[in-house]
Each structure stands twice: as structure tokens, then as C-alpha cells.
């Protein structure tokens, strides 16, 4: 635990916060390309955030203070979560305070507040969005937890740091249970980030929207913070996926060139997987809302199977 570690953790948080809109932009570009549209510039999300920050905030008459607190809380939680995941180095000083279970709890704390804020104004859409968000989450959250459980039992630790170094210590090994967990994680990633089979981030079509319905009453800097937090969430899930399933490149040492290599690898992984996400979204169709529990139930059961398989095959 040195000052350098703390600085690196802080640096990672800032890196995450700055990088998140870029990832959104990158996925957006690929989606546009794949759909034969003209792509927006890569920095479009930054422009949007900049514009929103400068607009005036309009708050509904029936809103309580909860509505105004939530964006800050959401952004704070997401920023914190981003700093907890080993993106570049694994030896993060805060990693001991928050293990994966607490990480799931932290994400869910942010979500509960967002859902409550959506219900705060008392409009039809707000409560609809909150209800749907909770519907998605009550299956996605346990699925995520089970994915973590699988990896945790492989490495006998729930701390992200030891999960990653556990993989590194054993070298190359094919874990069948990870195949299941990986599929489940991908499904959860799509659902939790409001991606295509579950929700469409680019729609305001009332019948299908989930996330957008919750934040209809937000405007100005509050909206900017929420959108940013949302982008951060995508980045968080990506880096979680990298840490669990593609941990190569992550370093435990503090040498400059190793960190640089890890950073470059991380960016490379983001580039490839961001494009992959766009491809995945383009080739699949949005599901009916009541197919969503089925979809997420499948993810949950796959994750459960993963952990079963781990015990059954007796690694």
C-alpha cells in the first residue's frame, strides 16, 4: 500500500471517467457503420455531455430532494466502481475493502436510487421505467453474482485482485465452467446496459423503453451526470469481463513499462470488444418485454450451471 498505488487507483478512476463516453462513441460508430448509416464523430458523446452541462435544469413541481441527489450519487458510485476493477494494475489499495459481492451491492445501490428517483415525480412513464428496471435487475443481479461465484470458487477468493492473480499464477488452463459463466456474463452485460435484446438505448418508443423512461424527467447537468454514469457502467462491465475472462496483460507490479503494456492491451481489448458489442447488437433483434425474464432466467440458470459444473468436474 504505497502512495503510488493510491495514485494509480485515482488515476484509474479518472481514466475510466474520461474514457467511458469514448467507448459509447466507439460502439455508436460501429453500429452506424453496420447499419449503413453515416457515423457520428467519435467525440459525439462528449459534445452531448458538454451541451447538457450548460443547459438549465428543470425540475418537476412534484419532485422531492431525492430526485436531485440521485444523479450525484449515481455518478459517484459508478466512478468509484470503475476505480475498483483491475483495468491496468491489480494491486489496488481499495480492492480489499470492496470485494465482488460488495461490488454487486454497490451497483445495485446505484440502481435502487435511480429507480426511486424515477418514481419520485409520479408520472406514468417514470414508474413504468422503474418497474421494468427492477424487473430486469432482479434476475440480472443474481446471475452476475453467480458468475462471480464461479470465478471466485476457481480462485478461492472473492477479491477481484486475487481472482486475477489466481488465474495468472496457474498459467494457461481451459475451464469449462468459465464458458458457461462467460455466456451468462455476456447476457447480463447486454441486459444491464440496456442493450439490444433487452432495451434499445437509442429509442424513445414508449412501449419498449426501460432506461430512457426512468430518466425522462431529468434535464441539464443532472441528465448529463446520469448519461455519463451510464457510459461508465458499460465501461465497468467491459473491464469486469476483461478481468474475469481475458485477464492477460494485467499486471501486479508497478514498473512503468508493464503498466504501459497493460494499458495498451486494455485499450486494445476495449476497441475490439466495443466493435464486437455493436456487431452483436446488430445481428440480434429486440425482444418483447415479457421475453426478457426468460432471457435473463436463462442467463441466471447458465451461471448456476457454471458453478455446478465447477464442482462437478472437480477442477
Amino acid at each position: 500500500m504505497t502512495l503510488v498505488n493510491w495514485l494509480l487507483q485515482g488515476g484509474q478512476e479518472i481514466l475510466g471517467i474520461l474514457l467511458a463516453p469514448l467507448l459509447m462513441g466507439w460502439v455508436g460508430i460501429w453500429r452506424a457503420w453496420l447499419q449503413n448509416r453515416q457515423a457520428p464523430p467519435l467525440i459525439q458523446p462528449y459534445r452531448q455531455l458538454f451541451k447538457l452541462f450548460h443547459k438549465e435544469v428543470v425540475i418537476a413541481e412534484t419532485a422531492s430532494p431525492l430526485l436531485r441527489v440521485t444523479p450525484y450519487l449515481l455518478f459517484g458510485c459508478m466512478g468509484l466502481t470503475a476505480s475498483l476493477i483491475p483495468m491496468v494494475i491489480t494491486d489496488l489499495p481499495l480492492a480489499g475493502a470492496v470485494d465482488v459481492i460488495a461490488l454487486v451491492g454497490l451497483l445495485s445501490l446505484a440502481r435502487v436510487f435511480l429507480a426511486l428517483a424515477a418514481m419520485d415525480v409520479g408520472t406514468a412513464f417514470g414508474s413504468l421505467g422503474a418497474r421494468r428496471e427492477m424487473l430486469v435487475s432482479f434476475l440480472a443481479e443474481p446471475a452476475l453474482l453467480m458468475v462471480f461465484f464461479t470465478v471466485a470458487s476457481l480462485n478461492a477468493s472473492t477479491s477481484l485482485r486475487f481472482m486475477v492473480t489466481g488465474f495468472a499464477a496457474r498459467g494457461f488452463y481451459l475451464y469449462p465452467s468459465l464458458a458457461f459463466a462467460g455466456v451468462a456474463f455476456l447476457m447480463v452485460l447486454l441486459a444491464e446496459n440496456g442493450r439490444i435484446p433487452v432495451d434499445n438505448p437509442e429509442t424513445h418508443l414508449e412501449l419498449t423503453m426501460i432506461h430512457e423512461a426512468m430518466i425522462l424527467e431529468y434535464s441539464g447537468r443532472h441528465l448529463a451526470l446520469i448519461e455519463w454514469a451510464n457510459a461508465l457502467k458499460l465501461l465497468i462491465y467491459f473491464s469486469l469481463g476483461f478481468a474475469l475472462f481475458l485477464p492477460f496483460g494485467l499486471t501486479d507490479s508497478l514498473q512503468g513499462w508493464e503498466i504501459l503494456r497493460a494499458l495498451i492491451l486494455f485499450l486494445l481489448k476495449l476497441t475490439v470488444m466495443g466493435a464486437g458489442l455493436a456487431v452483436l447488437e446488430t445481428i440480434s433483434a429486440k425482444q418483447r418485454l415479457f421475453r426478457v425474464p426468460e432471457y435473463l432466467g436463462t442467463a441466471f440458470l447458465l451461471a448456476v450451471l457454471a458453478i455446478l459444473l465447477h464442482y462437478l468436474l472437480g477442477s
Binding site: 481451459l174 475451464y175 469449462p176 465452467s177 464458458a179 458457461f180 455466456v183 447458465l302 450451471l305 459444473l309 468436474l313
Partner: peptide, 9 residues
Amino acid sequence: DLFASLLLL
């Protein structure tokens, strides 16, 4: 093992 698991999947 992986192939067997994939079969199950």
C-alpha cells in the same frame, strides 16, 4: 472437458 461442457451448453 471443454468440449463436453460445450455439448451440454
